[in-house]
């Protein structure tokens, strides 16, 4: 059995690790009867149930405005659920106090369509910030960032300003920042939305490599070209309802066509 490359490495913080021994076999993320309303009469998410096992790679797709981003935002507590619960690593994130939210986020990596990087910082500074928040010693920060930049294909470019990079490179910086702390779960909210198709495939491949090293990935996209070539589990959100399309896009497409 191959050795887990992350074995013996510190996770960001013990807040979500305290029950890790017992929870290793349990799902990393469970959503139970989740509801979210931004308008009182129309739920953005309705009765969403989802179980994500450790090490899984899940695509979440659906039309624009269907609730994909909202689903991810509920997981990293940008918003709070209006009904149901979300359990991450054995803890109900919807019941966390405001002061506990940073500790949840230290165990998650999040990548966005609009990158959310600091353009006047260097690549190194943008990636290192996630470790600085954890209070990692500078020497370790340098080593971990160098290692991460190599993983995302930016080795030796730490001193370049992010504002001067292309879209694909900027997204790699954002991915580097998301994975440098080796989070248990990586959330990607339309990470290829601003990239051309070739670059989108590159970025998806990078996510798959990260997943192969043991990180659970939830990848929200409405780009069907990415889904069609991928064997991963597929979740579809349509009008706030979650539909499991466990056999990939073609099966889901076939089912939606039949029901139509």
């Amino acid at each position: 059995m191959p050795e887990d490359p992350r074995q013996g490495r510190d996770r960001p913080i013990s807040f979500f690790r305290s029950r890790s021994d017992r929870s290793q076999a349990k799902p990393i993320l469970v959503l139970e009867e989740v509801y979210k309303y931004f308008r009182r009469d129309i739920p953005t998410l309705r009765n969403v149930n989802l179980t994500v096992e450790r090490g899984e790679f899940i695509f979440v797709t659906g039309p624009s405005g269907s609730g994909k981003s909202t689903l991810l935002q509920l997981i990293y507590r940008q918003h709070t659920v209006d009904g149901g619960r979300i359990v991450f690593s054995g803890r109900d994130v919807s019941r966390l106090t405001e002061s506990s939210i940073p500790y949840l986020r230290r165990n998650l990596g999040v990548v966005f369509q609009d990158f959310k990087v600091v353009p006047h910082w260097t690549i190194f500074e943008n990636v290192a910030v996630a470790l600085e928040i954890l209070g990692t010693p500078p020497k370790v920060v340098r080593a971990r960032v160098a290692e991460t930049l190599e993983r995302v294909g930016l080795a030796g470019r730490g001193n370049e300003r992010v504002g001067h990079l292309s879209g694909g490179e900027t997204q790699r910086v954002a991915i580097g920042r998301a994975i440098v702390t080796e989070p248990a779960l990586l959330l990607a909210d339309e990470p290829t939305g601003n990239l051309d198709p070739a670059l989108a495939i590159d970025i998806l491949t990078l996510f798959e490599e990260i997943n192969a090293s043991g990180t659970t990935v939830i990848f929200a996209t409405h780009d069907h070209s990415l889904l069609s070539s991928s064997p991963h589990r597929l979740i579809v959100i349509d009008e706030g309802r979650l539909i499991e399309a466990s056999h990939g896009l073609r099966a889901w497409s076939a089912r939606t066509q039949m029901s139509a």
Partner: peptide, 16 residues
């Protein structure tokens, strides 16, 4: 603003 947003998304506490 963008820096503060990034910090919060990465799990920075208010005091940080």
């Amino acid at each position: 603003r963008s820096e503060i947003e990034v910090l919060k998304l990465c799990g920075a506490t208010d005091s940080f």
